[in-house]
Amino acid sequence: MRKNHIKCLVGITVTTATALGAAVVPSAAAAPRDLVVHPGNSIQKAVNAAAPGDTVVVLPGTYRESVLITKPGLTLRGTDGRTVIMPAATPAKATKTTKVANTCAANGNGICVVGTKTRTVDDVHIRALTLSGFKKSGIWASWTDGLSVRRVTAKNNGTWGIAQERSTHADFRRNTATGNGDAGIFIANSVSEEGGATDTGGTEIRENTLTGNRIGVTARRVRNLLIDDNRISGNCSGVFVVGDESKPAAGAMTISGNRIIGNNKFCAATPRLSAIQGSGIVLTGSEATVVRSNVIRNNVGATPLSGGILLFKSFVGALNTNNTITENHVQGNKPADLANRDTSGTGNTFTSNECGTSAPGGMCAR
């Protein structure tokens, strides 16, 4: 059976039959449909008209709006890099009648997938779009489960390229994040309150290209995720794991198979963090994290956080414990390829790493 197709024209909705030559028979569950958005029309209106299981297909063009998704099972799909979403020329103002529709725009984001603590938004797929120039994030997600973002380009956004909090089982794959003010990909427990690390349920960040951001990937106060096979260069720092004294601690994650090269952009200090430059992978306040089989080269800087792979106390002094750094190729990083600047931490091991320099010495296999 074919999908239904809906073309969103100027004030007109056109549907086609569900099957050639077949009578339309009412059913409890309607067949999934494609809702096609043409340049000049509203993506948000198509999303509002969609039902769980439907796909909103956005044709090539530039669309100046923000899009809020609050229903499960939707797919929002562009056409490779030719579907571009940018901020509205005149930002919309929220009113009593437009508050929900404009929440995403009012907060300065491009696409928002937003649920609640009691009802997450599940199984939303975002594909093949470019999001550029938003004040805050290209994609922002909160209270979601099973969010999948693939082949998306998030560039030149004010804070994060692709960001998620309070969410589980996400899949961020084959995306490009470049020129964003903070992290290219940002995963957190919550951005609005303090608290222990939350379990992401195995969120995966894989095969992405992350360049020219403040940080390539930030994992803040989260546990149980995979950061694998990404290409990370030209940022101030490649991967940054942030923990604090809250329990459970951040960690229980795997950082593997990444190429983290030449992250030598300089980023000035913030109220909670020293200046960053030349940082490959930084663990602060992390426990039971495995850093394995990464290629980390030519990350050079003179800040306290500079170096190839380093352990560092968190901003509030939380220690790193029981982390394993093994079988990495770490060369040409300065001031050191491997640096343990958290010598009060316990159970941290450096084994079988191919490197030239370490601080303290003796941690390189050759």
Rank of each mutant, 00 (worst) to 15 (best):
G251T: 13
I187G: 01
V290P: 07
T357R: 15
I261H: 15
V57P: 11
E207V: 01
W160R: 09
L283V: 08
V242Q: 12
N48C: 00
A30C: 01
H169Q: 13
A365H: 13
D171E: 11
A365K: 15
C236W: 03
L273G: 12
L273V: 05
G158E: 04
C355W: 05
T254P: 05
G212T: 04
L76I: 04
D171A: 12
V290F: 13
L20I: 01
G212N: 05
S279I: 05
A88Y: 00
G195Q: 06
I6R: 00
F134V: 08
D123I: 09
A50F: 06
G243T: 05
A105N: 04
A92I: 08
R82A: 15
T176D: 04
V149A: 01
A46S: 13
T209P: 06
I260Y: 02
A269C: 07
K7R: 10
R221V: 00
R231N: 07
V191R: 14
H125S: 15
A50H: 06
R297G: 00
V58L: 08
G184A: 07
R33Q: 12
G251K: 08
S148F: 00
S352C: 07
A197L: 01
V14C: 05
S66Y: 11
K313I: 11
A51S: 14
A163G: 14
T116S: 15
E165R: 09
L76S: 03
N348W: 02
E354C: 00
L305T: 06
A154V: 06
T83H: 13
I85D: 04
N41D: 10
G317H: 09
A94Q: 12
A106T: 13
E193L: 02
N48M: 12
V316L: 09
L20M: 05
A141H: 02
C104E: 09
H38G: 02
T98P: 03
A268P: 12
N348G: 07
F186M: 07
S279C: 11
V124K: 12
K71A: 12
L210C: 02
G216Q: 11
V58G: 03
R297H: 12
G108D: 05
N109G: 00
V241T: 02
D54T: 00
S237D: 04
I187P: 02
T203E: 10
V282E: 01
V10Q: 11
S358H: 05
G179L: 08
G278A: 04
S137A: 14
H5E: 09
C236Y: 04
G317C: 05
V14A: 12
T62K: 13
S293H: 09
F134W: 11
A170Y: 09
G78P: 10
I43G: 02
E194G: 11
S358T: 08
L225A: 11
A23D: 10
N109I: 05
N264H: 04
T284S: 08
T75F: 03
G317Y: 09
S256N: 13
